[in-house]
Amino acid sequence: MIQTDALQFTYENGSEFSFPDVHLKSGEHLLILGPSGVGKTTLLHLLAGLLPVSSGTISVAGTDFQTLKRRDMDRFRGSHIGLIFQQYHFIRSLSVYQNLVLRQSFPKKALDKARIKELASRLGLSEVLHKKVTQLSQGQQQRLSIALGLIHKPDVVFADEPTSNLDDANCTTVIELLKEEAKICQSSLVIITHDHRVKSHFKNQLTL
């Protein structure tokens, strides 16, 4: 599912990162661990196609990123990749339901209302579907964020510190939820975290 080779990235300010090669089979999960500042988020953004690599190659779901133009990269991300951010990002002018519809809509995917309702009910969002996203509680925002990463059945879901703001009980709940949903969607899960509570849930680990 994910294949990288001699990946390197240099920021404009000169800080350089080299990453170990990642090999992940379809349906497998990966936990990327490491302290702050070693480039975890950078690696995640490289793998998700948000940043262009400085050198080396990335191939996700059989597509070599080097062959993709900017517009094709946007399309590829839209249909094959799911992202769950540390900070929640929503379209504030839309309702919860409309946010989910929007995530499903591009590029050219049919609206699947049943899927939205089903996922919302599993994540306990049924009651707030027609509320504005700004009216949600912290926990509801967390779950909506997960829903937005999975609603379009991506091949790979990247999650950036999904548990950092949570207490122990909720941490376990969210990890279970992620694994369960990834299984239903047959998606690979790539989680980066410095949170050691997550360690025990994944056997496939990479430490930077």
Partner: peptide, 11 residues
């Protein structure tokens, strides 16, 4: 939000 739309597949 605009960056988010790019993630969602909009060019």
């Amino acid at each position: 939000e605009l960056a988010l739309l790019r993630i969602y597949g909009l060019g």
